[in-house]
Nucleic acid binder design. Structure first.
Length: 300
DNA sequence: GAAGCGTGGAA
DNA sequence: TTTCCAAGCTT
């Protein structure tokens, strides 16, 4: 199934995009010179589904406390969950802790730069593996996140937004845009993401400022609205996700183990509360103590 | 392939 | 107020 336009025959001036990025890139701390592969991995993990401004202070603290994977690996899980704070999706913190231990034990305390090796680590998927390879090690590795998918959907395919993810096709689309040399490809990967974040946004794209506007397929098509299948918005209020968050927040705010009665106050409906507590235990985000109380893992 | 998994800010 | 969403991963 071919699209009318493919990435391979686009006329987009991608070197102009790289130049735009060099001129205007935000000065994010994990982009500073000297940041290690570990620093980049921590940033990419925190940034999965969490906005930059919330990640920034936590990332700074983590780098201060745990400058190497082995430093994090030496901490109990509960301490890592506390330091994760309210970034959300705390399973990310546990997986990063596990990944740190594996990197320390099997990779000489250095984050690997090879995509397949990265993919074998817990919590590192298609996006993160390539982001680390490109941003930390300057490699040519197609980096596909929600922003890049939108930029490609518009600039290459002329659509209002990306449809549902199609990993193989998405990867091939971006791969076709990257030049052969590692350094330029890595810069272009960062530039494509930045473009989607700051100009080619979902709601009010600033096409006047866009370095790709001249040959953008979406522009040429008259900027048609998104025509794909409706996107699903996930509910939050009243879901298990909310309840789990409340339970975990009680434990993060406590000095040590807490009683079941204390957790009971976090949510009124007993059935859902118990189910959520069970799932937290299964996920390893909560542990039960010998005397029947509850605590963050490793903190009793 | 779809569903589940946190959180808080902006429109 | 409600809705939408922000650099995904795992099952």
């Amino acid at each position: 199934m071919n699209s009318p336009a493919t990435a391979a025959d686009t006329r987009l001036d991608l070197l102009e995009l790289v130049d735009w990025f060099a001129r205007t890139a935000r000065r994010l701390p994990w982009r500073s010179p000297g940041v290690t592969g570990w620093g980049v991995l921590v940033s990419e993990t925190m940034l999965q589904q969490t906005p930059v401004n919330r990640v920034q202070p936590i990332w700074e603290e983590w780098m201060r406390r745990w400058p190497r994977p082995s430093d994090l690996a030496a901490e109990p899980q509960g301490e890592v969950l506390r330091a994760w704070g309210k970034l959300g999706y705390p399973r990310r913190a546990l997986r990063l802790h596990d990944a740190a231990a594996e990197i320390a034990a099997e990779h000489d305390d250095v984050v690997p730069g090879d995509v397949d090796t990265l993919l074998a680590l817990p919590g590192i998927g298609t996006y993160t593996a390539r982001a680390v390879a490109a941003f930390a090690y300057g490699k040519r590795a197609p980096v596909v996140d929600t922003n890049v998918r939108r930029v490609v959907a518009r600039a290459v395919h002329g659509a209002g937004d990306a449809g549902p993810p199609s990993p193989k096709r998405d990867l091939a689309d971006v791969d076709a845009l990257l030049p052969s040399d590692d350094a330029t490809a890595a810069k272009l990967s960062a530039a494509l993401m930045e473009l989607g974040q700051v100009l080619c946004t979902v709601r009010s794209p600033r096409c006047e400022e866009c370095p790709l506007a001249a040959d953008c397929a979406w522009q040429h098509a008259g900027r048609p609205a998104y025509a794909g299948p409706p996107k699903k918005v996930q509910k939050f209020a009243g879901t298990d996700r909310q309840v789990r968050g409340k339970l975990l927040d009680v434990l993060r705010g406590a000095d040590g183990p807490v009683s079941r009665e204390r957790l009971d106050r976090a949510w009124s409906e007993a059935g859902q509360r118990d189910r959520c507590l069970d799932s937290l235990l299964v996920d390893g985000l909560v542990e039960q103590t010998a005397d029947g109380r509850f605590a963050l893992p490793g903190e009793h």
